[in-house]
Each structure stands twice: as structure tokens, then as C-alpha cells.
């Protein structure tokens, strides 16, 4: 809906889609993929919180989600829980693969 966006804390999904595409492929393959496609928030976050300890320290979990709320909420969860949001990559079928690194 909104073409240009300057400054500020973050970008909306539309703005992210309208601007130069982020790297399509993540640099590091995830150690675990959680399929939360079709699930509404907070379910994707709950699945992430339940399973992040299944990867080794420093490992990456990918959350596949298509609820627009997840695009904002997974990075916000990372900030609150002191894990690292590595990046969010668009999926060809819609939604994102949102990568999170386990920090502790």
C-alpha cells in the first residue's frame, strides 16, 4: 500500500516486499524447520518457543509462517528472549521462512 518508507525501527511486510529484495537464500542452512504455515499467531511463536532448545547452541531454527503477524512477532520474540533474528526470507508460495539463532 505504501511506496516509500524512510527511517524508523522496521519495515512492514508490504514495504519489505516493495523495496529491493533481501537475500533470497539464507547464508546458513537451518538445523531445524518448524512448519507453522496456516497457523495464526501466537501459535507460530509458541511452536518456536517449545522447540528452539532442540537445536544446539548457536544453531538456526527456521519458522515457516504465513500469518502477517508472524513477520513482526518472531523478531519481536527474539528481542524479548535475547535470541537472534537472522533474517526473514520470502517463500515462493507466500509467507516467510523466518530464521532465528539460539543464543543460550
Amino acid at each position: 500500500m505504501w511506496r516509500r518508507r524512510t527511517g524508523g525501527a522496521r519495515r512492514s511486510p508490504e514495504a519489505a516486499a516493495a523495496e529491493p529484495a533481501p537475500p533470497v537464500q539464507p547464508a546458513e542452512p537451518p538445523a531445524l524447520t518448524i512448519d507453522a504455515l496456516g497457523r495464526k499467531c501466537p501459535i507460530p511463536i509458541i511452536m518456536l518457543a517449545e522447540r528452539i532448545n532442540q537445536v544446539a547452541m548457536g544453531g538456526v531454527v527456521a519458522v515457516l509462517a504465513d500469518d502477517p503477524a508472524a513477520f513482526t512477532d518472531v523478531p519481536a520474540w527474539c528481542r524479548l528472549k535475547s535470541h537472534e533474528h537472522v533474517g526473514s526470507y520470502e517463500l515462493p508460495q507466500g509467507g516467510w521462512s523466518i530464521h532465528v539463532r539460539r543464543n543460550y
Binding site: 524508523g8 525501527a9 522496521r10 512492514s12 511486510p13 495464526k40 499467531c41 501466537p42 511463536i45 500469518d67 502477517p68 503477524a69 513482526t72 512477532d73 523478531p75 519481536a76 520474540w77 528481542r79 524479548l80
Partner: peptide, 23 residues
């Protein structure tokens, strides 16, 4: 939160701030 609104999108305010939109 998106599930309380008629749309499926969360609040553009919370989204722009980058804070939790659910709950």
C-alpha cells in the same frame, strides 16, 4: 491484535514499531 480486527492484518502501528502484535 489482528484476530480482534475485521482484517487479518495486525495493527499497522504495532507493526511499524516492531513490537509484539499478538496478545
Amino acid at each position: 491484535s489482528s484476530c480482534t480486527a475485521s482484517t487479518l492484518r495486525p495493527s499497522h502501528v504495532l507493526e511499524a514499531m516492531g513490537v509484539l502484535t499478538h496478545g
